[in-house]
């Protein structure tokens, strides 16, 4: 596929009106290319979650355009938009949003079945993905029997269920302790290495540091855009320089 996986042009989202008008997203342009991992950082209320919702077709912009894989999505019908979300976009939320009545495996199977694939294929995908996030032995557990970190890993497996073009994660470690955060970071690092396109909204510097590229958002606008992988003279061997190890 040529061109960016995600593209936004002149993206604007207003909440409220008159005196209480909030410019949540204010004239944002963005391109995310295949295989890129992008982190969006900023203080709460800077519009980063709203931006993610617009990119994934969960909300419609007040103005501007959103393109997913060369297709404009902000003008799609609700039905077409729902289908696009199901097949092309994987979502990971801070509060996991698992179906509490379904087992871990069934939660991952669900989007595969909804995309019209066979139960057998759904089981195969779920087993593969739960193994990938290190939860093969928890497949039959209900979410209530899983820790927060395990639930988020199930949610990540579910987001990957239909081999989405892009995974959009909104504060994926916001509810997790340090150990669980590290588990999630390890999975993101694997996804990055495997070439999965990924957009992560976060205020956690550790999560942001797994990305190739980082944009900073303030008051609905991008104020900085940084490539974290930029050519750097210091290799792994030079890590010791950070400690001032010497004679």
């Amino acid at each position: 596929m040529r061109g960016p996986v995600l593209r936004a042009r002149g993206l604007v989202k207003h909440h409220g009106r008159g005196q209480s008008l909030v410019r949540a997203v204010d004239e944002v342009d963005l391109e995310v290319h295949a295989g890129q991992t992008l982190a969006v950082m900023g203080p709460s209320g800077c519009g980063k979650s709203t931006l993610l919702h617009l990119l994934g077709g969960l909300e419609r912009p007040t103005a501007g355009e959103v393109w997913v894989a060369g297709r404009r999505i902000d003008t799609l019908s609700e039905r077409a938009l729902a289908r696009l979300r199901r097949r092309s976009v994987g979502f990971v939320f801070q509060a996991f949003h698992l179906v509490e009545e379904l087992s871990a495996a069934e939660n991952v199977e669900l989007p595969v079945l909804l995309a019209g694939r066979s139960p057998r294929e759904a089981r195969r995908r779920a087993s593969l993905l739960l193994d990938r996030v290190g939860l093969a032995d928890r497949a039959r557990h209900l979410p209530s029997r899983l820790s927060g970190g395990q639930r988020q890993r199930v949610a990540i497996a579910r987001a990957l269920a239909n081999e989405p073009l892009v995974v959009l994660a909104d504060e994926p470690t916001g509810n997790l302790d340090t150990a669980a955060t590290l588990d999630v970071l390890r999975i993101f690092e694997d996804l990055r290495a495997a070439g999965q396109t990924l957009v992560i909204v976060t205020h956690d510097e550790r999560v942001a540091a797994t990305a190739d590229r980082l944009v900073s958002m303030r008051d609905g606008m991008f104020v900085d855009d940084t490539r974290l992988t930029a050519a750097h003279p210091r290799g792994l061997g030079g890590l010791g320089g950070m400690l001032g190890l010497g004679g």
Partner: peptide, 8 residues
């Protein structure tokens, strides 16, 4: 952030 990425 680049250093953090490297150490992480």
């Amino acid at each position: 952030l680049r250093r953090l990425r490297e150490v992480q």
